[in-house]
Amino acid sequence: MKFGILVNEGPYTHQASDSAFQFTKAALEKGHEIFRVFFYHSGVNNGTRLTTPPQDDRNIVNNWSELAAAHNLDLVVCVAAAQRRGIVDPDEAKRNSKDADNIAPGFRISGLGQLIEAGIQSDRLVVFGD
């Protein structure tokens, strides 16, 4: 079965991203397809590589990046929500004359249409938020 995942909260403050990660991992291990994981609202904060949690804590951003690399996951950060919250890839940094970017490996920035498409193309859309 094809799942779409929507993550509406950033890492650490709320459990939503952890829950979404555990669900996504379990679905992949069971042989399901993840059409896309879409990060919206403060969920875009899952996509910054500057995150540095204490060493004895999980690194949620790295967890997503590693899962994406292992399973060719499509991790999409909403551009409008990302711009508000300072999540930037090299293209966006150039376009908006910023002096740096911070997008984590495996994530890409794109439009809200990607969320609608995930709803259309997936058999189930599962929402994790607050």
């Binding site: 509406n8 919206y40 609202h41 809200l112 249409g113 609608i116 259309i120």
Partner: peptide, 18 residues
């Protein structure tokens, strides 16, 4: 911000004629 960003999804989603 949820109400505002929800409305933004609705507006973008309208183009998909669902």
């Amino acid at each position: 911000i949820y109400a505002l960003e929800s409305l933004e999804v609705v507006l973008i989603g309208a183009a998909f004629e669902q």
